[in-house]
Each structure stands twice: as C-alpha cells, then as structure tokens.
Design a protein around this nucleic acid. Structure first.
Lengths: 172, 172
DNA sequence: AGGGCTTGGTTCAAGTTTGAAACAAACCTA
DNA sequence: TAGGTTTGTTTCAAACTTGAACCAAGCCCT
C-alpha cells in the first residue's frame, strides 16, 4: 500500500506538537530538578502514591498509572527509596509483589515542591490556553491515549473480578 | 502568594496530556528503533537535515530547530556519523563552526524508514483526531512553544540581520 | 595590539532509560 | 501434584541524557 503522507496541516500540527512537548517536559524537568532535586517522573511517582489509599501502590499498578515500564519504575523507586522518599513493603497476599509506600518525609518533600511545580505547569501551559483549549487538549490527549492503550492491553473488563489484584490497589 | 492550584478540568487535561505524550513518544520510539535502528530524535535529525538546503546545517541551528541542547546533539551526531548517516564538515567562515551533512546513505535510510514512521504517526495520532482537532492541536502546541521560547531567547527580531549566521543556514 | 567577554562546540562524569534475560511465585492442567 | 505457562519484579549491559566545565575562535573596546 502506498504511503499516506501527512498533509501540510498535519505536518504543521505534528511539528508544533513535537516542539511543544519537548520544551514543556524540559521546563518542568528543570524546575523540579532545581527545586526538588528530582526529575519529573520521580515527582510523579510520589504524587501518585500520595493520592492512593494509605499512600501505597503495587509496582505494577504504579507503572500502569504512570505509563512507564516496570523496569524504569524499579530504577526510579530504588533511587527514591535510597533517598528516603518511600520504602518497599512485601505484599502479603502475593509473595511476588512489592509495594511502594510513601514515607512521611516523602510526603513532606512533595508538599514542599508542589507549589513550585504547579506554578510551572500553570505558567508554561494553562496560562497560555483558553478554557476552551484546555477542554480540547483533554479530549485530544484522551483520544490518543485511548488509541495507544487498547492496542496492547484490552485488559480489565470481564476478568477484572473484585478479589483480583487489579481492583485491590493496595493489596492489603 | 498563595498557590493557584489546578482546577479539576486542568487536572484532567494535564493527566491526559502526560499519559498521551508518554505513550506517543514510546510508540514512535519503539517503531523507529525496530525498523530503522534509531530513536526518534535521531530520525528527526536526519529528517531536518534532508529538508535543509544542501542537506546540511550547523550544529547550533540543528539544535535550535530540534529544541534540544547542543550537548545532546553532539552525542547524537557522533553516533550518526559513526553509522555513516552523516558527516561533519568544518565551516569556512567561522572556524568554530561545524556542519552536519546528510550522506547519501543517510538519505537512503531515511527514505526507507519514512513510510513506516508516517504510518505510525498516522495510526497513533491523526487517525484518532478529527480535522478540527488537528487544527486545535496545532494552535495549542504553538501557544505552548511560543510561551516557552520567548522566556530565554528573545532572539531574532532586530538584530537578526541578513548577513548574520542565523539567516544563512548552511554557512556556505 | 592586548585583554576580556561572548559564542560554537565538545568532553566528562553522573544519572537515567532501554530491552532482554533472569528469577521466583502463582496458576493451570492433565 | 508435577510440569509448564504466566505474572511480578529485578538485574544487567548498553545506550542515551544532563549540566557543568572546557577549549577555541570570534568580537569588542580601548
């Protein structure tokens, strides 16, 4: 089949998107590195944990939520654990499992870093967009994410029964 | 000043965006790594070069267009040069300068990889969006990029005179 | 001309990411 | 219930990124 090349509009959109996403990740990473001594991903890990019941989550669930590989997560968690931001606990019900638990120190660091981070997100992103555009961005992003996720993982649905791991996020 | 936290709509948009951009970069990187043996950035370098006059560009210009640091570019170009995708030439007019030139082999590799890449971009992104959304994405991205660039570099404008480097991209 | 500042580019070490391989526990099935 | 497969996690080496430090070469300015 002959390639369906991008139209000029698509080209423009694609290039603009690439530039924006690079610049944005960069700005955010730099700010967090400066003010919290960790890259964006690491901050996100703490953030997700802080919102989970009992501030704990299994590695796989954490990876799933953050859309990163388990391997990448292992490395990050190892560093964060070394820094005292979180600790690992064994899972009682599944001896393979390991659970990341946010420590009080980790929570404190997060609380301290949050305002600066939000400010950066705001000034880099939301201050530049109209309310309407915020909605558009969400829809567009959701559409992309949806598409890319169903590809590999038609997970959940029927086999996601209550007593299964997937629905008991803290595994304890 | 008290932090202006994100509204629920902003939260949703932000999370959706984060997920989408991670998944998208991932999908694209994986495809290119598989089919062309190089990550997305490296492909982009070849791509930008291929569209430049004489398929050559100064390092700084290349970095500027790709929105990456010079250091990162140096590393990438070193690898690509080792692989024969491009070569470096000295700049005649400015002995500090070095110019990356796409080789015929590099061009061939690019041509071979392009269809697969475009197909991935299409199926991951544009097939999921309406025409209207493509336009919205461009506007949103442009707004973000604009904001993040003027911060550091209020370059160009008046002092971007014709005979200056910035406007003679090939420096030769 | 002789500093001193700026710019273009690379280098270096430390940190991060990748993907494949290794392991171990859990699950299935005959 | 033994063996085979799947799932959860880590490990390892190789690749990539980061930011600061460095080296020239160009650019003032007096």
């Amino acid at each position: 089949m002959t390639t369906r090349w991008l139209t000029p509009e698509e080209q423009r959109a694609w290039r603009a998107y690439m530039a924006a996403s690079l610049l944005l990740e960069d700005a955010i990473d730099r700010q967090l590195q400066q003010d919290a001594g960790m890259p964006h991903l690491y901050y996100s890990i703490l953030s997700v944990l802080s919102e989970s019941p009992e501030r704990r989550l299994r590695m796989t669930d954490l990876a799933e939520r953050l859309k990163i590989t388990r391997s990448r997560l292992t490395y990050a968690v190892t560093r964060l654990e070394k820094d005292g931001m979180l600790r690992r606990e064994a899972c009682r019900y599944d001896k393979r499992g390991s659970i990341a638990v946010l420590t009080d120190e980790g929570f404190a660091v997060l609380e301290r870093a949050a305002p600066g981070h939000v400010e950066t997100v705001r000034s880099s992103l939301f201050d530049r967009l109209s309310e309407e555009q915020v909605g558009q961005l969400e829809e567009i992003s959701a559409a992309i994410a949806r598409g890319l996720q169903e590809e590999d993982g038609p997970r959940a649905a029927a086999d996601d029964v209550p007593w299964r791991r997937r629905s008991s996020p803290t595994c304890s």
